[in-house]
Structure formats: structure tokens, C-alpha cells
Amino acid sequence: MKKTAAPMLKCVVNGVKVSRAIDSGLTLSDFLRGELHLTGTKTGCNQGECGACVVVVDGKAVNSCLYMAVQANGKKVITIEGLKGKNGDPHPLVQAFADEGAVQCGFCTPGMIMSAYALLLANPAPSRAEIKQALSGNICRCTGYEMIFSAVEKAAGLLRGRGGK
């Protein structure tokens, strides 16, 4: 089968418009890491089983290792690099993960934070049970999760205190 012209991918990544011709066989994680050099998104299993690659597309957490890049056409993608507070300060979730001991080896952390970010977009005041459920697709092998739950609760409180973002 002859290769057709490379398709254009037009989307918004971390608030920046992206428009470029890509190989349509790229997954979103390949595209973010390899083409945009946004290496904060990790791949731990490449089959949707670990959650390290989670990014947020149009407000929803997805496994970017199974999401074809061209499927992001016309959509808004947010990665860990896009989570910045005002003046480039760390986002409350990022800061809370650091402060609460929710980070050990750090490899699951960006995906974990993105799942938490998607949760807080939909539910600014989640219960602990809802946090556990929302993070159940993100495996952490280091922390035992407890401090991750505390970090999400703390960040949720901070974000509510300043009215969302």
C-alpha cells in the first residue's frame, strides 16, 4: 500500500497551537515525547496498564500510549508541563505532591498528577473514596498511595480556596 501524504495534526498542547505533518502511526505519547520533546509524560508499559502516560484531552484523562496522535485533532491536550500556576509557579497539585511525600521514584508521578487534575476538573471537592477510584488506573510501586491521597486532598483545598484555577 503506498504511503499517502502525512496527515496534519492540529491541536492545542498546553495552551499552544500545534500544527504539523506527522506519521499517523505515532501514538500521542510518541508525539508528545518524541516530536514536542515534552518528556514529562512517561511510558511504563505501553499498554494502558500502568497509567504513567496519562494526559488530559478535552478535560478527560487518557492513556497517551494507546491514543493515536491523530485522534487529538482539534482537541486540547494538557500534559504535566502544562500544569503551571500563576507566574510559572508550580501548580498546587505539583507543589502538594512534593510537600506531602507523594513522590518517591517519580516515574508514576506525572501521570498520577494528570489523573488527579482531571478528577478535580470534574469534581473540585472529591471524597477520599472518589480520589482512590479516580487514581485506580495509575500504579505507584513506591509510596503505598497514602501520601498521594493526602496531596490530592490538600491541592483540592488550595484550588477551592482560590476559586478553581
Binding site: 518528556t39 514529562g40 508550580p90 517519580g106 508521578t109 506525572p110
Partner: peptide
């Protein structure tokens, strides 16, 4: 932790 913020912000390079 020394490395917490770099890891949580996605800056840490593996």
C-alpha cells in the same frame, strides 16, 4: 525531598 519538585513537574530526566 530534594528531587520532589523536579519529578512532580515532569522536569526530571530518566
Amino acid at each position: 525531598r530534594k528531587d520532589a519538585l523536579a519529578k512532580a513537574s515532569g522536569e526530571a530526566l530518566y
